[in-house]
Design a binder for these strands. Structure first.
Lengths: 353, 353
DNA sequence: AGCCTCTATAAAATCGGTTGACGATAGGGT
DNA sequence: ACCCTATCGTCAACCGATTTTATAGAGGCT
């Protein structure tokens, strides 16, 4: 044992009088260990334990070409949407004794690329990209498919590319939100749509339109505003407040408002309150996502829940499956998982009197 | 180049007709490269670039005994207090081209220990523990000092141990909060203290008492409640709401409330609203931390800000310094950094009429 | 001629663990 | 007596880099 206090396999071997190979074979239960008698095994095992031997994962990875690490690219770790996904992933990976190497791109494509390279350098066996917001470009895909690293994009769906994705059913979710308001008797409903650049915006809007059509509800284009494009996910709070202010100034009455996401909805709450309107008495508000904040506001927010933890563990599961498939030389299928959204009714909506 | 598409240093060597040693020496600008003529260097460098050679960090780490990785133990990644710290750390580490390996302990001591071992196994060169809540025990310390891994605890201070810490000046911060209310004319003030097990509770309370004393303000023990101990940082919202309810039921009037942290304060807002009290008209509320939520609530929360990003980069800086010191065989000093808190006045407080 | 020093490059050792190919012994079958 | 197989291990190669040591030719000096 060197003076660093770190015990190598050779130290153990020397200590108990066997070779490093034998120690390795025994401790890993390799096929050859079949022929090693029980008492030898025991001697080796107790020596290893006594000496506190812990195999060096670096050396092991180098030899076995397996890092036991999944790279996780988070577009913006301060986004409350991300952390529950991370939590879910972590749960799934923990069980498979994989570690996750998390890179936070700060919403900057430049960092995204640099970190992507770092992750690939570190020989991550798989990659999960939590794409809440940033419009990830094609270069990503090129790099990844070229390097044969199983990849899942969580939180977004790309219809056109051959990457696995895990995303919520935005269309159905948005329908749920509108249906909820409709059932409560609301007919004059305002909308704050998401920015065009986000695919989820389009999907949610499609859900809105399809429900409206099926229910015979007329959507008044004067009451439909669109969030500006922005790189910062937290900006939608400000934008929500501002657009709601515009709606109110415009004078067209509405009894309910559907926001693109929770942040937007919280912004709307603030703007409504500022104009002296009470929620839900004077106006109902629905969000989307169910981030942690949604339950804590006053009034608490009725919203459409994305099962973020589940999405996280699903993503991890898909990547792990793909890795296993590659081990067996099959190629992994592209999985597009759409998880159902769930309406969470809280205080910000109520029946129209 | 193997069929994996990964280029090794030997591939580069073969390609340009030199040995792996020479390539390594040139690409790293090692001392011996002094003797290598410029055109050879150029040939090697262009070949490396053309072939897209990227040295394998695993192999490099194994040889050099340096992982270029800092381990980060997060007690609970879904706690909004943690992510800005992570962001700050990441910024500092990015510049030093260190990567952070984040482990989320889920508030479970069991996971904490297992991850700690994993991190040490991976030969992290330093460790930052983001200790928002969990009462970390002594075993941690033993393991760490034994393994000679520079460690910083961010978010807590331990007076009695010889670990570096970065924490906010809780005492001064709490004083600021109370002073703010006092200046606004409030004299009947209720308090929701933090749980005893947290050292920050005691510190904040000390700040409260010291300001009260210096201003001649009497604290009414009937209006001082204490949050229950709990492992879950998000529980303080519920607890805040519940304790505020108790205060109100008790009937002792108060015009302002100082909460242990922002979550507690948000809980208080909810309880006050439920009883029909308006904030800040009928009661002012102050929080502590300035988590992202604080600015988004209605009314937005006056609070004492912990400069979390700065704390994160400070922590990273201290660890990096310690690593550098160890490189030069000096031993790194124990640093106890206390950063100033800052009062952020928003809508939840106003002058007593 | 003999011995240094300076260049320019390569061979070999090393990091710590894994693994396929062997060696050696003992017993069983023919 | 001979081959086969089951046991119990060890050797050496290997993963992909870095680094120490070595080699070899060219000049320069005595």
């Amino acid at each position: 044992m060197g003076r660093t206090g770190i015990v190598t396999i050779r130290d153990v071997a020397r200590e108990c009088g066997y070779s490093a190979s034998t120690v390795s074979i025994v401790l890993n239960g390799a096929p050859l260990s079949r022929y090693i008698p029980a008492d030898t095994k025991e001697r080796i095992e107790t020596a290893a334990k006594r000496m506190g031997y812990r195999p060096n994962p670096l050396a092991r990875s180098l030899r076995s070409q397996r890092s036991n690490i999944i790279g996780v690219m988070v577009i913006d770790i301060t986004d409350p949407f991300c952390t529950p996904i991370l939590r879910g992933m972590e749960n799934a990976l923990y069980q498979a004794s994989y570690l996750s190497l998390i890179a936070d791109a700060h919403n900057e494509p430049h960092r995204f690329e640099r970190y992507l390279e770092m992750l690939l350098d570190r020989r991550v066996e798989g990659l999960v990209v939590i794409a809440n917001w940033l419009v990830t470009d094609i270069k990503l895909l090129a790099d990844l498919t070229e390097c044969r690293v199983p990849t899942v994009i969580a939180g977004r769906s790309f219809e056109n590319h051959s990457v696995s994705t895990v995303s919520v059913d935005n269309e159905a979710g948005a329908s749920l939100a509108l249906e909820h308001l409709y059932r409560l008797g609301h007919r004059d409903i305002a909308f704050l749509r998401g920015p065009k650049a986000l695919s989820s915006s389009g999907q949610r809007w499609k859900g809105i339109r399809s429900f409206a059509q099926s229910a015979g509800l007329r959507l008044d284009s004067k009451k439909i505003l669109e969030l500006p494009e922005s790189l910062d996910p937290n900006s939608s709070f400000e934008a929500g407040a501002q657009l709601t202010g515009e709606l109110l100034r415009q004078g067209k009455p509405f009894t309910a408002l559907v926001a693109y996401d929770d942040m937007t909805a919280l912004g709307a709450l603030r703007a409504l309150k500022k104009k002296g309107l009470r929620v839900p008495e004077d106006c109902s508000v629905v969000g989307f996502d169910d981030v942690a904040q949604a339950g804590l506001s006053v009034p608490s927010l009725t919203t459409v829940r994305q099962p973020m933890e589940a999405m996280g563990s699903l993503s991890a599961g898909i990547v792990l499956e793909a890795i296993k498939a590659m081990d067996e030389k099959q190629d992994a299928p592209v999985v597009r998982r759409k998880v159902p959204a769930e309406l969470v009714v809280r205080e910000s909506t109520r029946a129209l009197k």
